[in-house]
């Protein structure tokens, strides 16, 4: 299929609105076509920017209370016949609403972090030089980071596994140096980001989990004071296998 045909689908690709068949065909095309790859990167960058910039306005606490009161002043409260005082029911609902809003705020922060690493993964793949150090040997890649990042980490032995280490590069994440490792699984690439696990990052990411970000699978976890984030367009199950190997390696340190 021609580039022009794919260009029409770039937005739907970025929005994960293509069928899985079209998605994988466009994935393959993007790997071979620098022009379409550049467009895909621009699309992802723009979506990430608008996602973050668009969350701009917050209601005042007074207005929030006013609307909540408007909704909650409706008759037929479910607790009234149970003899529970009205004010207790309202207070409980306010607490629940506050917890929900706090939870939503954390989800938004988490989304922003995951969007950032997904963007870095896509940018690296679209780059002519996706890695600074090209090596499949973990004993070459790990020492390369000495003096570049303020931490050290162990990498797994991949002999006999379907994964290959392609290399790594130094990145800056939230103003601090961090490591990005690039692995290959069949035709898919997997970026593994390793950085210091700061309280801010901990708060933003919450518990370890697997999630979807612009059709990519993203898994996050922490170990040994470090925060790990793995991003790929490969199946979640395959990502999980590499994550298990990485966790086992970090447990040895």
């Amino acid at each position: 299929m021609s580039c022009e045909t794919w260009q029409e689908k770039i937005d739907a690709y970025v929005d994960a609105e293509l069928s899985s068949d079209e998605m994988s065909r466009l994935d393959s095309h993007v790997r071979e076509c620098p022009a379409c790859a550049a467009d895909a990167v621009r699309g992802v960058q723009l979506k990430r920017l608008t996602h973050s910039a668009g969350k701009r306005y917050t209601a005042s606490p007074d207005f929030r209370k006013k609307v909540l009161a408007q909704i909650q002043s409706q008759p037929s409260r479910r607790f009234s016949w149970l003899g529970v005082p009205q004010f207790a029911a309202v207070a409980a609902m306010l607490v629940i609403a506050m917890l929900f809003w706090n939870h939503n705020a954390q989800l938004r922060q988490r989304d922003q972090v995951l969007a950032q690493v997904t963007d870095m993964h896509v940018s690296a793949l679209a780059s002519a030089n996706p890695v600074d150090v090209v090596s499949s040997d973990r004993h070459t890649v790990k020492p390369w980071f000495q003096g570049k990042v303020p931490f050290t980490f162990n990498l797994p032995e991949l002999q006999g596994t379907p994964f290959t280490l392609l290399g790594a590069r130094l990145i800056y994440f939230e103003h601090a140096p961090a490591a990005q490792l690039l692995y290959q699984y069949q035709q898919h690439h997997i970026s593994v980001f390793i950085m210091n696990d700061t309280p801010e990052l901990d708060r933003e990411l919450g518990k370890a989990s697997l999630s979807r970000q612009l059709s990519f699978n993203v898994e996050t976890w922490d170990a040994g004071g470090l925060c790990y984030m793995a991003v790929t367009d490969a199946e979640a199950q395959n990502l999980g296998t590499l994550v298990t190997l990485l966790k086992q390696a970090s447990a040895k340190s």
Partner: peptide
């Protein structure tokens, strides 16, 4: 007619997007 983005291998726009700050994007929106 159909919308087709400009095909270009150079990505000055990509660099621009990378540098765009939140306020600039908000002004554009």
């Amino acid at each position: 007619g159909p919308v087709v983005a400009a095909v270009t291998e150079e990505t000055p726009e990509s660099i621009l997007l990378g540098r765009a700050d939140q306020e600039t994007v908000q002004r554009a929106i």
